[in-house]
Amino acid sequence: MLRSMYSGISGMKGFQTKLDTIGNNIANVNTYGYKKGRVTFQDMMSQTMSNAQGPIAGENGNVRGGLNPSQVGLGSQVGSIDTIHTQGNRQTTNRPLDLSLEGDGMFVLAEAGESGIDTDDREIELGNVNTSFTRAGNFYLDSEGAIVNNEGKYLVGQLVNENGEEVSGILTIPDSAQSFSIQTDGTVNYVDENGDPQVAGQVRLANFSNPSGLEKLGGNTFQYTENAGEAIDGLDDLLVAGQDGTGQMVAGALEMSNVDLAESFTEMITSQRGFQANTRIITTSDEILQELVNLKR
């Protein structure tokens, strides 16, 4: 059988994967905090017809020049499916629990009901709970006043316990609070029933040396992997917004998806044409095989 037929098949598979990724990007064009995917290709192993040779001296002292290798490629394959963590546009909502990050960093979420969460004093042992990370800043208050996301995961921040120590924990706004606000550094302030200003805690962020190494979990969240950087084991691993390379926190706004529709549709067109070209390779190879079969009539 012709090698070109199998090369065409490999090209079709690769462009199908790229079309799947583009379709997912377009489907999430209005998803808060979504980071688009990108597919790259690489060539497959090549079949060597003749090896490279260096210059050779003849018997009479003549020198024969070197020869380049002769190789036939066997198609293409998907090299990587990357997650592009560029900044998305900011959408103003004027809702106090909508938070947007202008720059690097991610919100830290802790699973509800884990053994590492003390629901009485609101402390969280980060090394003993399942943590996830997100750029989607649409948060809410539960029945106990804790700040959670739309799946009930707690927003992790810095608290001061009864002993005056800074610990990681659940940020809570009392039911008796008259109003509350979140500052650009993540500090959560509220006014109590007596009209006195109080501090509920401070939203802390996680920052990774390689955010593309995070694994998507769905629900606008990411999971830590060893290729992302250092793990989050305690409060010391969390950062204050606007410090140590993290971005500023903006309340009353949300970060939109970083998908560019014009770019996505252009990539979709080129992928479609690439897919069609590879199908043409298969049909042309089939016509050649048919001609070979018809040599004997």
Rank of each mutant, 00 (worst) to 15 (best):
A177S: 15
D82F: 04
E114H: 07
V129E: 15
T93L: 04
N150I: 03
T119M: 13
Q202D: 00
P96W: 11
Q91F: 11
V108L: 06
T172Y: 06
Y140S: 09
Q87Y: 07
M106R: 04
E193V: 00
T172W: 10
E151I: 01
R135E: 04
F139K: 04
F133C: 01
A146Q: 14
I182V: 12
I117W: 08
N163R: 11
Q198D: 04
F222C: 00
R90C: 03
E144S: 13
T187C: 02
I170H: 05
A146G: 11
D121K: 07
K216Y: 14
P96I: 10
K216S: 15
N128Q: 15
N194G: 12
G127N: 15
R122Y: 15
A200I: 03
N163H: 10
L101F: 01
T221A: 15
E111G: 07
L141A: 12
F139T: 05
I170C: 02
N189R: 11
N94S: 11
Y190D: 02
E102L: 04
E102A: 02
I124E: 01
G103F: 03
I173Y: 03
F180E: 04
V188Q: 04
Q223P: 01
R90S: 00
D142I: 10
L159M: 09
E151R: 05
P211S: 01
E144L: 07
K216L: 13
D98E: 12
L97W: 11
L126T: 09
F222I: 02
G164L: 09
E165N: 13
T172R: 14
F107Y: 13
P197Q: 14
E215Q: 15
Y154L: 01
F139Y: 14
E165V: 07
R135I: 04
E144A: 11
L171W: 04
P211F: 06
F133D: 00
T119Y: 15
D142G: 10
V148A: 10
V188K: 00
K216C: 11
S132W: 05
Q223W: 02
S115H: 00
T184M: 03
N130P: 03
S80L: 07
I182M: 11
N207H: 07
E193W: 05
Q87T: 14
G113N: 13
I173M: 03
D175G: 14
G137R: 04
A110T: 00
L214F: 12
D192T: 07
G88Y: 01
G79H: 12
Y154E: 01
A110E: 02
G145H: 08
D142Q: 12
